[in-house]
Amino acid sequence: MTATSEPTARPRRPRHPDSDGTPRGSSAGRAERAAQRVTELIESVPPGSRLGTKEELRTLCEVSVGTFNEALRLLQARGLVTVKPGPGGGMFSAEQSPMVRLGNSVLALDARQNDVADAVRIRDALDPLLIEDALWHASPADIAGLRRHITAMEHAVTAADPVAFVHANWRLHAAIASISPNALLSSLYTHLLDLIEGHTLSVLPASEQPLGEYIAHRHALHRDLVDALDRRDRDEALRLISEHNTTLAADEDPAARR
């Protein structure tokens, strides 16, 4: 065909999309399939198992270096693999499990999952002490600061962003802890929050209830808690913090409560 002739080439064969709608021939599609192949390998071995070197797994997946690096990024973002350098290093199945619950979601944790579960239990036990201190010691400026965190939680609800909601929630509780004149109590609580946040990989759905509805309910509960602190309503504040820590199904493990 010359440069001036009408294009009469046969039509292109359409590329079949992957399950997520990504064309199979695209780089993103190849990376997703490579990630899926490694995921299948992960599911066949115990947590913490060595999967092989990056080059061995790239060869197994039959993709280019760039495509495999993208697949590795997907796997790490999902908390499925860890990469260890040096002799004996390589890619390992992550020692992680969804241990800490946020209503109908779970916080997927890294290898410190047992530490985090213990931290949540201790944090829940300390909440009433910090509420008592906040009832006595919160200044108008403190209450205004708490309301800013409530607003951040509201924005996360509106944006349907459970990750932002969880982090705004933690910042609210850290601000309540900072009101306490008991430096040891405040420091311990803040350390527990840092441990939980530092080892949380993601927020994942875990039940039939829409996650948006649940975080909206939790936002309202925390808003009411701050209102009770502002009114110095001890009975209501303690009732709300009890509800905060006991609103999960009775058959759930309390050690896994968010």
Rank of each mutant, 00 (worst) to 15 (best):
H191C: 04
S139A: 13
G79F: 03
E243P: 00
Q96F: 02
S105Y: 13
A175M: 10
A206F: 12
W136G: 02
T22L: 09
R12M: 13
C61R: 01
E43F: 03
R33L: 07
P128H: 10
S207E: 00
A168R: 09
A138D: 06
H155F: 10
H222P: 02
V83L: 15
A175L: 07
D124N: 00
L80V: 05
V157N: 03
I196L: 10
D161C: 07
E208L: 06
M91P: 04
T2Y: 14
H155E: 00
P128F: 09
T200M: 09
I241Y: 05
A152I: 02
R218F: 12
E252D: 03
E32C: 02
A174L: 15
R10G: 01
H191Q: 12
L129P: 00
R147H: 14
M99L: 05
L72G: 10
R10S: 01
D115V: 11
R232L: 08
A31L: 04
L146P: 05
E252A: 01
A220L: 12
C61Y: 11
W170V: 12
E6N: 06
V120Y: 02
A228F: 00
D124Y: 04
R30V: 00
D110W: 11
L201I: 15
I176P: 13
A138K: 12
P205W: 04
T59C: 05
V45D: 10
S49I: 05
T8K: 08
R232Y: 07
S27C: 00
R171Y: 03
V100F: 14
A94N: 15
A175Y: 05
A216E: 02
E197P: 01
P98K: 00
F92T: 02
I122D: 04
H199E: 05
N69F: 04
E6K: 11
R101C: 04
V63P: 09
S242R: 13
S26N: 04
I215F: 04
V203R: 08
S202E: 15
S93I: 09
R231K: 15
A108M: 14
S187G: 14
N104G: 01
S186E: 03
A177G: 09
I143M: 02
M99P: 09
E154Y: 12
A35H: 00
P98H: 06
Q113K: 08
S180E: 08
A3M: 13
P140L: 12
T2Q: 13
V65Y: 01
E56R: 14
N69W: 10
P87K: 12
P140F: 13
R218W: 15
A119C: 15
S202P: 07
A249L: 09
G90V: 00
R78D: 15
Y189K: 01
V203A: 07
S49Y: 14
A175Q: 07
L211I: 08
V83F: 07
I241S: 09
D227T: 15
S139H: 06
A34P: 05
V83R: 13
A174G: 11
S242K: 10
A183M: 04
H16W: 10
E6R: 13
L201T: 13
R239D: 14
R123Q: 09
R101L: 07
A164R: 15
Q113V: 14
H222F: 03
P140M: 05
